[in-house]
Design a protein around this nucleic acid. Structure first.
Lengths: 349, 349
DNA sequence: TTGTATGCGTTATCAT
DNA sequence: ATGATAACGCATACAA
């Protein structure tokens, strides 16, 4: 009689002359198995090529061996965010060596964000989730708690949090950009920020205003949804103002590239008439003309650490708050000395 | 005695005075249950708020209710590909309404592509997979067959395939771009293609050469890995040639934007000196200066149809080959009349 | 038309 | 200290 394609624990137990339970104990290095029995069991398991069924194990342990990442509603905006890809690659770096799998769930027109989390929890499809793009008074913090999901936040929530977090000091990146521009002689700078609802967008905006103010610079900012479209609109609004900035700090490369486009259409030369900095240091930014000065964060490393931290949380380890290396400013061609001939008057029109 | 937080099928059976098996039959609309028994069972289930455990169901049915998408080795290149995000959003549109989940697995330095598929199959983590970026003599076709995974390919493989496929006629998009350029008077055009190993890159390149030749145009092409870096290098190589093209057709927007950068650095004006077309019609392309003429495919719809087709394959439906709507050319500012003063001689240097 | 048994790995509970 | 047994949760082939 040939063995079944997939031998089961019962096959091993039978062949080794022991019970199923003992096989399980032997395989998982639990005490209560004599060393020669354990050796015999392992030998038989090896002979039969038995590997435990993940599904059966999931059923009996109550774990999924999977982690979830829910992409919020604005898929079209996120669709353009290169951060996510690198971040996901980092998650996989870690999950792939620990037998975990990443479940990606996007909120859709027919299924809102909260319902997506609820579905993942109800079906116990994941053991934990990664919370990105933290918002003000983020309802997800309460939600994952209620649902009994382990979770890690990217960045620290406002107020006390019972969840572990992995953070990058976005503010330091923005401050570096502002200092860089101040050093180049800029006195009127602006910030094209993300949505006010997102914590990291707030952090960046606050860092921008603090840095500008402490350096005695005139500062303005416009909120956007991070899309190229709104980045372009914000740029136009700033340049249309009474005292247009000589430099603009963007909250992502995408909007910065769109901003370059807007400036160009107005006949402005970059960086001669306007300096521009991005955020994320994407590949594309290096190849546009002029090459984009940008704040660089290590998204992949962020993913790796987030994955490790989440696995720790799932394993019941105490809450930790990890801070990653500070972002750095990659200075390229889109920033230069402030124009000397502009003093409150318009440069063109 | 309070009910357990999660009532089980046994609770329902006990309360309804029937066996577990019958509850299962009633719930899954199987024949062999009298209609009043069925009604009573469903009533009790509703009362208790019972929902079947996905894990137990997965164990007994042998299904995972999950589909997989494996991202090949060059995560950094894919990281930049906006197509993926929209495509994934489309997958989720469909999966989210059918109780499926998307498992994203990236090949990593420590786990090659084939091993990633093998792992998903060994653990039975997914019922089927979506094969993107089909390659010449793609070993994955054999692999998924051997692994017993249902699968859908994006585009048709070479030779006969036992897998369902969902295709977009990339070639039609490229042909539209070439015709558009020919109509504008261009006689020397070039193509910055993807890697020769990828079938859709080949298709586009072949379509380019066919269309150009049949229109009597001088045509050249350079292969790349789809990255902005190689797109820039290819552009430089083409412009450095003896008879530089007056128009370049790029295989994605990313490279086209990088190409715009390269042309700019050489003092070329677009579209006056050089016309450029992209592929994918990304948001960013609309906001650079000049706005990018680009081939538009509906990646999200592609995702939706791929998901439906894969679910059909998992359900054992016969193999189908779906063709989606032809891509369209979004004409914007980066294409214009061919320069009249260039006839084999250099335009600048 | 309905009940029973089996499968899958883990673990609490029991028996030596 | 070692080991066996049963239960978990669902679907389904089989028996009644």
């Amino acid at each position: 009689m040939a063995e079944s394609p997939q031998p089961t624990i019962a096959d091993v137990a039978r062949r080794a002359g022991v019970s199923k339970g003992l096989v399980s104990f032997a395989l998982n290095d639990k005490p209560g198995v004599s060393s020669d029995t354990r050796a015999r069991i392992l030998e038989v398991a090896r002979e039969l090529g038995w590997t435990p069924s993940l599904r059966a194990r999931a059923l009996s342990t109550g774990r999924s061996y999977a982690c979830g990442l829910v992409i919020g509603r604005s898929t079209d905006v996120i669709a353009a965010d290169p951060f996510f890809h690198s971040f996901i690659a980092g998650l996989e770096d870690e999950f792939s060596v620990s037998g975990q799998v990443l479940v990606l769930a996007a909120a859709t027109p027919g299924r809102q964000e909260a319902e997506t989390y609820r579905g993942l929890a109800a079906d116990k499809r994941v053991d934990g989730v990664i919370l990105t793009d933290l918002r003000a008074a983020d309802s997800r913090l309460q939600l994952v708690g209620d649902l009994g999901l382990a979770a890690v936040t990217l960045g620290m929530p406002e107020g006390p949090s019972e969840l572990s977090s992995v953070s990058v000091d976005d503010g330091a990146g923005i401050r570096a950009a502002v200092r860089h521009l101040a050093d180049l002689g800029h006195r009127r700078i602006a910030h094209v920020a993300g949505p006010d609802t997102m914590l990291h967008a707030r952090t960046r905006r606050a860092a921008f205003h603090d840095a500008a103010t402490s350096l005695g610079l005139a500062a303005a900012s416009v909120d956007t949804d991070f899309s190229a479209e709104e980045g372009a609109a914000a740029t136009a609004a700033l340049l249309d103002g009474d005292a247009p900035p000589t430099a603009i700090v963007y909250s992502n490369d995408h909007m910065a590239i769109a901003g370059v486009g807007v400036a160009r259409r107005r006949g402005l030369s970059i960086p001669r008439d306007l300096s521009i900095t991005g955020f994320d240091d994407t590949e594309l930014g290096r190849y546009i003309d002029p090459a984009l000065t940008s704040v660089a964060t290590d998204a992949r490393e962020w993913g790796r650490v987030a994955a490790r931290t989440l696995l720790g949380a799932i394993a019941g380890e105490p809450v930790v708050h990890v801070r990653l290396a500070e972002p750095t400013l990659s200075v390229r061609e889109s920033t230069g000395p402030a124009p000397t001939h502009t003093r409150g008057d318009r440069r063109d029109r």
